[in-house]
Write a protein that binds this DNA or RNA. Structure first.
Length: 972
RNA sequence: GCUCAGAUGGUGGAACUGGUAGACACGCAGGACUUAAAAUCCUGUUCCCGUAAACGGAGUGCGGGUUCGAUUCCCGCUCUGAGUACCA
């Protein structure tokens, strides 16, 4: 029979599903290998041809590893909480769970049709209560933990409380809020429970914090950054303002150093690691306190005065600097317009100036401020600080180049060393003091670290290293500063004012958050009448009627587990306690994806997020494939949660993803037709072929790429495409209509979306899989282009034909394979092994073509050779290979676990090599010489050759370079 | 601006540690089969000159360098893509 891909593919997809062919074993004597894809958000649009790229690559790898004798875990699931479903729900009233379910069904059908070897028995959905129960559980563990800097790990809050009870706050080195109290053990015990809880919240790894959000009053909701364009909501175009709200946050900054160090231990693409390093943004420097002039004593204990009495201003301004050695060059202090001390520092004479400046900066959008980076602006507050080292009076300015969100929101300005400070000083006529002997500050700042200090009191004559050490020592001695490491990364906000997300397992009592009891998990998402905020601006969960928490004060957990798990949120034991309001915000999109790889290890466990045994066996992800757009989101949060789970002893590895590969983006490739414009400037119904548009006046028009092949427009299909083109006319070149091409994002509105369903229909899944790989290196971004797909399809037919005679009857011979056949086979064995190990899938597709071309030329129909070929090709084109495998007489379903053929180098040994003979580096001819000859003999053979002599024109070469088995080069 | 990645025929791309540039495929041209078309098969296909071949010259974004030999290494530049945004 001819190659009937449709029947074959359907048959085997069915077989795999019915037989659970790809089910990973939980216990195995085989070594484990975990291949993971970034799971998709199931959008309504379904998959386009770009999505499966990474999945195909990982599937080839997973199948290959099975052939190599590994117990492979290759799961798939859905990141199914998210905004689009909620948006759709708002518009249609349809429950997001329903649309999500429908979208998942589409995704599943599309994925199945490509023939992936996923273990679907482990599927996860982040929006399923069995799953988000454990997301909530991890949240609870974070709530019950604090970060001990001395131990460099998270520890339980109970341990912190025990310490407070014994020693008070002394001896605690924690990552926590700025304004913590210091107290003795007795003082702690004397505190009310309320006060104790308030204090503990400052230490918890997930905590409440006031944060600024994009608030859209018209929509009554908070928007994500990418939903805001130029200060207006993307949807509807309503104004968006910055609003402060109490929000859940994650103390990811506690892990900043470990997140940074860990990068050196994992095999990720360098650009991606660099992105994370920049995001974490570690800088080493010092914090320095500048006493405010005329304020009295400098207070050295931050904790003492920061008890929340906001009307009392501290006696100093703290700055962070990476160049503390330039402290004697400070000639003014610049603070952010939003800095909390601005009001109290502004003198009555300067108030008008300052107010005007603040008003001006507020008006500027972020975009303006960016575009305006070169313009110097600022205003003098009228107040001064003193240089802590020499008591010199220094003006305090506000300037919008200082960002409130970074460091302390204040900068010590050193115009001689920093270009921005220099421009500022020039503009406002402030002094510029050189502090290094070789500094040249005629026209711009000179940030050199060479030379020795001048104008710097006790530092004079010292170099950078000694000077820096001396300043820090001095600052520490007088309590005005210390060495400090600063991170750019901020704590992550962990709350969304949305419906379609995980409810936060917290209720409020007297304004403070408490966890619900663990056996009340999962806290189910309640039903609401509408998916919009309430009239009073509360998140959608505020609409849920009777949705509140009634703790059961003394009910034992054992008693509770017998309760039905499903309905514990709404019908908790009447009268068993007071009702408390639940947290109304839900978790952000990244919550569910920050631990999902553990769930796959033991997806159906209802006792734990995954059993310790499963985690001990599967450990971590060996290979993770996904897009680089998740560099600073998902991939950072996942590493953070992984480290946390390790700290509390639940998992064993410090890093979740040992090796990571970024697949490139598949861009769209748009086609254009050119509509002729008539003399009045109106569009006609005549279209000019691309090559002729210079001769006419035309306007380009996107045309559906699916009716264009190799840039040639299918005229009939074009006429059918839209009614207005039914009687279109064409000006052709060489009898064809050639379309223009441009690379754009793949999007419906450009008519350049290619659906994998269409490709699978027309050519089959095996062709689609191989073609996506053939397109180019996996990591590279490239436009989708169907132009070459015929070649891949033809290759598979050619492969099929090796097993069939002229009449398309299956026919293989049992003869001894010939030397040439064995050579072809072992060449491809080695090539595919090498290529897969280095993720160079495109080159193996070419090599398969070469191998099949060779075997076709050899008229090979040898069983031994062809059976090995089937195994090698099966990870790329599994359906056709399964079919041929059974035709060869093997039991169905055994191919996936067949042993990968062993490479034998002896078949490739050559006794001759066709040496390229070059003169002055230019290749002139080939000469076959025995490989047994040594360098001298080769040289003699070459020089004795008559053709070589012709090139040399009878002269002796000046020099002869012979590289055995490679090349001969003669210099004349 | 900074950081990273990249630039090879008409097109996608190959050349893995410096050693025959353009593998493989698409497209195109010519041919075979066919009443014809489709499908299939065969031949050619970097460019320029030579209007057939042999042969000669140029050639991996641009300009230099190292080397017997550079797509590959070094220096300078141009362009494209991605990330980031006054980070003290």
């Amino acid at each position: 029979m001819d190659y009937q891909f449709k029947d074959i593919e359907q048959k085997w997809q069915q077989f795999w599903a019915n037989n659970g062919t790809f089910k990973a074993e939980d216990k195995s004597t085989k070594p484990k290998y975990y291949v993971l894809d970034m799971f998709p958000y199931p959008s309504g649009a379904g998959l386009h041809v770009g999505h499966p790229l990474g999945y195909i690559a990982s599937d080839i790898f997973a199948r290959y590893k099975r052939l190599k004798g590994f117990n492979v875990l290759h799961p798939m699931g859905y990141d199914s909480f998210g905004l689009p479903a909620e948006q759709y729900a708002i518009q249609t009233g349809q429950h997001p769970a329903i649309t999500t379910e429908a979208n998942i069904a589409t995704y599943r059908r599309q994925l199945d049709q490509i023939g992936f070897s996923f273990d679907w028995s482990r599927e996860v959905r982040t929006s399923s209560p069995d799953y988000y129960k454990w997301t909530q559980w991890i949240f609870m563990q974070l709530f019950n933990s604090w970060y001990n800097k001395d131990a460099e790990k998270a520890e339980s809050i109970a341990k912190l409380v025990a310490h407070f009870e014994q020693n008070g706050s002394a001896g605690i080195n924690a990552v926590c809020d700025e304004e913590i109290l210091s107290f003795s053990a007795a003082e702690w015990k004397a505190m009310s429970n309320q006060d104790q809880q308030a204090e503990l919240l400052k230490y918890r790894l997930t905590y409440l914090r006031e944060s600024t959000v994009n608030w859209c009053p018209a929509l009554g909701t908070v928007l994500a950054n990418d939903e805001v364009k130029d200060g207006f909501s993307e949807r509807g175009g309503y104004p968006v303002e910055q609003k402060k709200m109490m929000q859940w946050s994650m103390r990811i900054t506690a892990y900043a150093e470990r997140l940074l160090q860990g990068l050196d231990t994992i095999d990720w693409p360098e650009p991606l690691k660099e992105m994370q390093r920049n995001w974490i943004g570690k800088s080493t420097g010092a914090s320095v306190r500048f006493p405010i002039s005329g304020f009295g004593d400098v207070r050295t204990e931050v904790g003492n005065q920061a008890t929340g009495h906001t009307n009392q201003k501290p006696g100093f301004i703290e700055v962070f600097t990476t160049r503390v050695d330039t402290l004697f060059g400070v000639t003014f202090l610049a603070i952010a317009p939003e800095h909390e001390l601005v009001a109290s520092l502004t003198t009555p004479e300067q108030k008008a100036d300052i107010d005007a400046y603040i008003a001006q900066t507020k008006k500027k959008s972020e975009l303006d401020r960016m575009a305006d980076a070169k313009t110097v602006s600022g205003a003098f507050t009228g107040s001064y600080v003193l240089n802590p080292l020499n008591g010199e009076k220094i003006q305090i300015w506000i300037a919008d180049y200082v960002l409130a969100g970074y460091g302390t929101g204040a900068v010590m300005a050193v115009p001689s060393g920093d270009q921005r400070d220099y421009l500022f000083a020039k503009h406002f006529n402030l002094p510029i003091v050189p502090i290094i002997d070789i500094q040249n500050i005629e026209t711009e700042a000179d940030p050199t670290k060479e030379g020795t200090y001048i104008n710097s009191d006790f530092m004079n004559g010292l170099d950078y290293k000694a000077g820096t050490a001396a300043v820090i020592a001095k600052l520490e001695a007088i309590g005005a500063g210390k060495a400090k490491i600063n991170f750019r990364m901020r704590d992550a906000i962990f709350g969304r004012q949305r419906y379609w997300g995980e409810p936060v397992p917290v209720y409020f009592k007297e304004g403070l958050p408490y966890l619900i009891e663990e056996d009340h998990l999962p806290l189910l998402l309640p039903e609401v009448d509408k998916y919009l905020p309430t009239e009073s601006g509360e998140p959608p969960l505020g609409r849920a009627e009777g949705w509140n928490y009634k703790a059961s004060p003394k009910s034992s957990p054992k008693e509770r587990t017998s309760d039905s798990e499903a309905d514990n949120s709404l019908s908790l034991g009447e009268g068993r306690g007071e009702a408390y309001a639940y947290e109304l915000s839900t978790m952000p999109g990244w919550a569910g994806s920050s631990w999902y790889w553990f769930r796959y290890m033991d997806a159906n466990n209802d006792k734990e997020f995954a059993s310790p045994e499963a985690i001990a066996y599967w450990k971590d992800v060996d290979l993770y494939i996904g897009g680089s757009e998740h560099a600073t989101g998902h991939l950072l949060y996942s590493r953070f949660w992984n480290k946390f789970l390790k700290d509390i002893g639940k998992v064993g590895e410090e890093e979740p993803f040992k090796k990571l590969i970024n697949q490139g983006m598949i861009q769209g490739r748009s086609n254009f037709v050119y509509r002729l414009i008539d003399e009045e400037g109106r569009g006609t119904n005549t279209f000019v072929s691309y090559g002729l548009i210079k001769e006419y006046k035309t306007s380009p028009l996107h045309v559906d790429v699916n009716i264009v092949e190799n840039e040639v427009l299918n005229l009939n299909k074009f006429k059918e495409w839209r009614p207005e083109f039914a009687d279109a006319e064409f000006i052709l070149e060489n009898g064809k209509y050639i379309c223009g091409v441009e690379v754009e994002k793949m999007s419906k509105r450009y008519y350049n979306v290619v659906n994998p369903d269409d490709i699978a229909q027309r050519y089959g899944a095996d062709t689609l899989r191989m073609y996506e790989m053939f397109l180019g290196p996996l990591e590279q971004s490239k436009p989708w282009n169907t132009n070459g797909i015929e070649g891949v399809f033809k290759f598979l037919r050619k492969f099929w034909r090796l097993f069939h005679n002229e009449a398309w009857e299956f026919s293989v011979s049992n003869n001894e394979p010939s030397k040439a056949e064995l050579k072809s086979l072992h060449k491809i064995i080695r090539k595919v092994e090498e290529d897969i190990e280095r993720f160079s899938f495109n080159t193996s597709v070419s090599s398969f073509m070469i191998a099949v071309n060779e075997l076709t030329d050899l008229k090979c129909n040898n069983r031994a050779i062809l059976q090995d070929m089937v195994i090698i090709l099966s990870s790329y084109a599994p359906h056709i290979c399964e079919e041929l495998w059974t035709l060869l007489g093997n039991p169905a379903g055994t191919l996936s676990y067949a042993p990968f053929p062993k490479f034998n180098s002896s078949y490739l040994i050559e006794d001759e090599f066709a040496y390229p003979i070059s003169i002055n580096g230019k290749m002139k001819m080939n000469l076959s010489i025995s490989l047994s000859l040594d360098v001298k003999e080769i040289e003699a053979t070459v020089l004795a050759n008559a053709d070589v002599q012709k090139y040399l024109d009878g002269k002796a070469p000046k020099k002869v370079i012979v590289v055995k088995g490679r090349i001969v080069n003669m210099v004349v």
